[in-house]
Amino acid sequence: MVSFIIDGKKVEAEAGANVLQVARKYGIVIPTLCCHESVAPSGACRLCVVEVKKGKRTRIVTSCLYPVDEGIVVETKTDRVLNVRRLVMQLLMARCPESEVLKDMAKEMGIEPQPAFHPDTDKGKCVLCRLCVKACEDVVGASAIGLSGRGKNKKVGAPFMEDSKTCIGCGACAYICPTEHIIMESTDSKRKIWGRTFKMQPCDKCGRYFAPVDQLKFISDKTGTPMTELAVCMSCK
């Protein structure tokens, strides 16, 4: 266990934890976009920055990655911190002018859009938090979507920006997307995502459509469980 100070409060935490986890445990609100408990943090959005004093050195760090250490002093709302968060929000609002999530967040943080930034029209609501990519690769194991390009041309999508060939239609990306950029359209028997339409599997017992057939095949291939066993929904199992 290490003890340190956060916003003037003395706190204790497990060594190896990061500042964000500890702050949240103690009820301190730090905004984030690219952080999710099911995937490893990447430090991409920079909203969670805090000021850390360690020894004589004070610097701005991302709390989602910064490991807690004995004796550090963390401030989560200094002017420098708020300046970074304001810039990040204004930049993202200019990138994704249609995102209601961002607008609501900004409102809560008391941040107005920067009128000098000409709003983009080609990025949709994607903030490039890369949660979807990580979920697809690390959690699902499908690696159907990935990053491409770099800088302002960085994108998320299937290779060659074509309809995904290896997508299994599980929808993990859509569930984890913080800004509702990834669109998944579902009817009872069909699901549309990443340019593909997936046939849904009806439950052998109750008849409810519960998962894409491709997803069940993927699980069957991976785990060796026969398809017949997988064709039963969670509630009927």
Binding site: L91, L128, R150
Partner: peptide
């Protein structure tokens, strides 16, 4: 702007906006 890897927002979007200005 051209060489930014595009991972973090301040560099990817910030440098792009500075270039615009």
């Amino acid at each position: 702007e051209f060489e930014s890897c595009g991972k973090c927002v301040p560099c990817r979007e910030g440098v792009y906006r500075m270039n615009e200005i």
